[in-house]
Nucleic acid binder design. Structure first.
Length: 112
DNA sequence: CTAATGACGACAC
DNA sequence: CGTGTCGCCATTA
């Protein structure tokens, strides 16, 4: 599939996310070029559920702009939360990370 | 092509 | 400040 170019971009960025850090869908979408493709980003991550390289993409480090683990439903149990905790990410709520402290800007590592 | 959906985001009330 | 609505782009039916 050549149209997966968008997905590749998402994966390439998400794979660069260091442990203990998190980023947002909008940030990734903007770094790719599709600023308003925030929804598409989540859509691409969801696709990982069936991709063999899915394990290579720490989609659990991607949360919405509020730090909410909206996609935890696509992980096994609380894997998305437990993984972030074991990496050192602080949580404000049961399923909300401290995005303000652990925010990771892809444009500072990919685009620049 | 049209209509509906989605791990989102911003604006209006 | 909280709720409600539209827009965004790609995929699917």
């Amino acid at each position: 599939m050549d149209r997966t170019d968008f997905y590749d971009k998402v994966y390439e960025i998400v794979m660069q996310i260091p442990a203990g850090k998190v980023t947002t869908y909008g940030a990734i979408a903007g770094c790719i070029g599709v600023k308003s493709g925030a929804r598409m980003v989540g859509y691409a991550l969801n696709n990982l559920a069936g991709q063999s390289d899915g394990e290579s993409v720490p989609a659990h480090r991607v949360v919405n702009r509020l730090g909410q683990l909206t996609g935890r439903a696509y992980f096994e149990g609380d894997v998305m939360k437990e993984r972030l905790e074991q990496e050192g990410v602080e949580f404000k709520e049961e399923y909300t990370v401290h995005i303000e402290k652990h925010f990771w800007d892809p444009a500072e590592n990919i685009g620049g």
